[in-house]
Structures are given as structure tokens and as C-alpha cells.
Design a protein around this nucleic acid. Structure first.
Lengths: 142, 142
DNA sequence: TCTTGACCTCAAGCGAGCTTCAATTTGCAA
DNA sequence: TTGCAAATTGAAGCTCGCTTGAGGTCAAGA
């Protein structure tokens, strides 16, 4: 089982070494061991990083991710993940999708509507109301 | 034409006065006039603020918004908006929606898959690849 | 007229997610 | 064994979107 040095992990993940160290400081990843001072990573860290990127793109903070991904043991890739938490997150993503769908329609309308003043266009007003009500109600997460 | 003071705009928009002043410093809104030192707003600023909130929820920065919404004149609500820009934004939102859709599916899979190690699950690997390729290609905006 | 409280400005601070810098240590090739 | 490229640490800096605080001004009601 070859371990990877930080440069290799950086190269393969596309993250700068500084970011990897930052992640470690937050407990979202961990080095397997050290060779002298230098971090040695288990290859599984790459999967974990992919999962982290996934979470970030989904709009979750590194703190959130650390929590739902479980402690960074650095050990043999045994993610003990919080399934309930993750599916709650998926629900949040779905809500976000619905919101963005409304927003997209509103934007397209604004781009195309010829009303001299948008504020007056009833169609726009209604979409706006929907979209904003929405984000008001779902201010909690995402 | 009654003009509104900052407290009124704050009350009606839900934004703190400090936020309104901050917006003004970025040129995203403008006060109509001053009564002494105090800002007086045309009621149309509320529509503009709603539009701004819309843009923010869609994921655009205040800079972006200032640009596509046009200069804040403070005048009689004649938004001169960049229609092409806005429809580009809508495209970006749509791409984001497609990405989030993949992410949601990936998250739900992770939450439910019983493979001892996610990294090994082929279904997951594939979704991951899709999702990440995606965000890689669309790193530009949103 | 005086008082008061809302408003003003400018500067600094905050949290997230990193990067950069400076000073130091060290693994590895020659 | 030497020497250097690359790693380490800790602190500070940066962008975004605001908030907070200090110190000052002023419109309006008693």
C-alpha cells in the first residue's frame, strides 16, 4: 500500500497543498502518517476529497461536511457516514433546485418582457413574489 | 411623490440600514436625494431591491448585479437593464440546476448504498465522475 | 430654543475558505 | 556527505457581504 505525499494528492485532486493542510486543520481529512514532518496520505483520501468536492458543490460548508462525513481518521477508508444527515442534505438540494427553477423563469421573463417598467408587469410581480416567498421560507439551510 | 427614509426602506425590504448604505457604496442602489444628510429614497428602490434579492438568490455577486442592472441613478425607476446579460445568467442558473440534480442523485445514492466502501460502488463512481466533470467544465460562472 | 434620537461617515471587524509569506526543517539525489 | 527542492508551521492577508463602533450632525417634537 503505497502512500501519497502531499504533492501527489495535490496533483491528483487539483487542490493546492495549502488547501489540503487547511482541510486537515478543520478535521475534514487527515494524513495517514508522517515521514519525518511530511504528511503521507492513504490513497483513499482521494475518494474522500471527491466526496468533499461533491458536498461543496452542493452548497455545504466544510464544517457541515466534516460532520456528516464523520471524523477524519486517516485509516483504511472506513467512512462512517451520517446517512440521515446526507438525505436531509439531498432534500435541501432539491428545495434549492425548485427555487432556482423559479428564478430562472423570472430571469428569462425579465430579459424578454417589454413592459417599460418591470415593477409594473404583473407576470413579473407574481414570479417575484413566488420566488421571494420561497427563499424567505427556506432561509434555514442552503 | 412621497420619498422614503432609510428606516422605511429598511422596514419594507427587510434589509438593515447598514446593508442599504453598503449597497449604495457599491453603486447597486442610490438615494434619490438628501434631506440634510439623510437619504431619501424613491419608492421604486423597493422594486430594485427585490430584483437585487432575486439576483443574489440566483447566485450572483453584487458586482454582477450592479453591472447587469445598470447604473443606480436614483431617478424615476428607469432600469436600463442588460437583457443579454440577464439571459446569460439564466443559462448559468439552468446549468447549475442540472448540476444540482446530479448532486442530489449522488447524495441520495450515498445515503442509501450499502457498499462497505463508497469508493468501490460503481454506480456511485459514475455519478461522481459525471458531477465532477460537470463542475469542472463550468467552473467559470456560478 | 433645547433635547433627543435617528441618521451620518469612516474604519475596523467577522466568518468562510483559502493563499501567501517568512523562517525553518528535512528527504533524497549526486 | 553535502546541498537543494520541497515540505513544515504559524501568522497574516484576501474577497464577499455585511455589521459594529466611535464620534459627529441635524430634523423635529416638547
Amino acid at each position: 500500500m503505497k502512500s501519497l505525499d502531499i504533492a501527489e494528492v495535490s496533483r491528483r485532486s487539483g487542490l493546492k497543498p495549502s488547501a489540503l493542510r487547511y482541510y486537515e486543520s478543520l478535521g475534514v481529512i487527515a494524513a495517514d502518517s508522517r515521514k519525518g514532518l511530511r504528511r503521507q496520505y492513504d490513497p483513499s483520501v482521494l475518494d474522500r476529497l471527491a466526496l468533499i468536492a461533491l458536498g461543496q458543490r452542493a452548497g455545504f460548508s466544510l464544517q457541515d461536511i466534516a460532520a456528516t462525513l464523520g471524523a477524519a481518521t486517516g485509516a483504511e477508508a472506513e467512512f462512517e457516514l451520517d446517512r440521515q444527515g446526507i438525505s436531509d442534505r439531498a432534500d435541501a438540494v432539491d428545495r434549492r433546485i425548485r427555487e432556482l427553477t423559479l428564478l430562472s423563469r423570472a430571469l428569462r421573463h425579465v430579459a424578454q418582457c417589454q413592459a417599460p417598467n418591470h415593477a409594473q408587469c404583473p407576470k413579473f410581480r407574481q414570479m417575484m413574489a413566488e420566488a421571494l416567498t420561497w427563499s424567505g421560507e427556506n432561509r434555514q439551510k442552503l
